[in-house]
């Protein structure tokens, strides 16, 4: 199941989240929200909240860099 991370320009938490996933050796697809307002609206309608980073692991969504939440979600996914 693909992991998706939505980021924005200059967001340090987006960089930290990507660095965390890189260290874990987890592959992910990145979309930069600063570029596309249509994606923003769709995301809000789909997940009910928005902020960066927004990380989708399986059927779970995480707003912000929640290290513990991500750790647990990755364990559940494996």
């Amino acid at each position: 199941m693909p992991i998706i991370i939505y980021t924005s320009f200059d967001c340090p938490y987006s960089v930290m989240a990507k660095s965390y996933l890189d260290k874990k050796g987890v592959a992910y697809q990145e979309y930069n929200l600063s570029r596309n307002s249509l994606i923003k609206e769709n995301l809000f309608n789909h997940f009910g909240e928005i902020g960066t980073p927004l990380i989708i692991i399986g059927d779970e969504a995480f707003v912000g860099f929640d290290r513990e939440g991500l750790e647990n979600a990755l364990i559940r996914l494996s």
Binding site: S8, D10, C11, G51, T52
Partner: peptide, 8 residues
């Protein structure tokens, strides 16, 4: 976090 979320 305005630097993160202002573009949204």
């Amino acid at each position: 976090c305005s630097i993160c979320d202002a573009p949204l």
